[in-house]
Design a protein around this nucleic acid. Structure first.
Lengths: 136, 136
DNA sequence: TGTTTAGTTAACGTAAACGTAAATTTTTCA
DNA sequence: TGAAAAATTTACGTTTACGTTAACTAAACA
């Protein structure tokens, strides 16, 4: 009881727009660890949350290994906190990368704005809304 | 005249913390196109700027091909603006990705903060400043 | 009860982004 | 000018993150 609907591999794959292969691969990497009914994988809400974190990390440009590292810290039990100083250093590195990424993104967005503006001047947009009227 | 100091490949490699191989590879990809003095590559300020953009794109998680696409738009001459609608669509896609990345980064930073806080509670930091005194 | 329809493991394939080694100029500088 | 240092091309190797069969099993359904 109180399980909250387990997902099949294709359920999860579809809802996150990844392939089943990807989910199995993430399992090989230690990123996911779904239960099994016989051989068949059954994904819980917890697995969904982990997957969400994994995909976010991926979008942020972290490697799967880095993502695993972060998840390992995130899900570490009190007794399992080995070498916290190393972990703190890694967290600091991750943070630095994220901050750098945000700065880069701001600049890149401005750049894209300028780019689009230039495009508009060089090749003005069609007035799509005005097709029906005039000129007829 | 008015050239402004050309850089050798190792100059540029060192100042951007990449290898010479990387610069040659970027050239193969069409991302850079330095002049040649005989066979030797000579990088200008313009090349420096392009490289800066390339590396920023890389940090943002764009593929070299996507980066090339953006640079091609950026450096397109008026006459060369082919299919501006396609370009606008690509720019929109790039922008969407950057915006998504920023949102993810904000969440991830909060997450890292929480993670570090938890680490601090589970394994308090050493009081580094107090080494010299006491206990002696 | 046969046959689609998922799901599984195992294994090889691949694209991107370089690394690395070899063999060959080119440049520099004592 | 001649040897060491730096640059070049060519080409094969490597890692990451999956894609793609293949061969098999379990489940569901007409």
């Amino acid at each position: 009881m109180a399980d909250g609907a387990p997902y099949t591999i294709s359920d999860l794959a579809e809802s996150f727009d990844v392939t089943a292969r990807t989910l199995r691969f993430y399992e090989d990497c230690g990123l996911l660890a779904p239960e099994r009914h016989g051989r068949t994988r059954l994904y819980s809400e917890r697995d969904r949350k982990r997957l969400r974190l994994v995909l976010r990390g991926r979008r942020l440009g972290f490697s799967l290994e880095e993502i695993k590292e972060m998840l390992d810290i995130h899900y570490a039990r009190p007794g399992e906190v080995s070498s916290p100083d190393v972990m703190r250093a890694r967290i600091a590195a991750h943070r630095a990368r994220l901050v750098q990424g945000r700065e880069d993104a701001v600049i890149a967005l401005d750049w894209l704005d300028a780019l689009e503006g230039r495009l508009d001047r060089l090749a003005p947009r069609e007035a799509r809304r005005a097709v029906a009227g005039r000129m007829g």
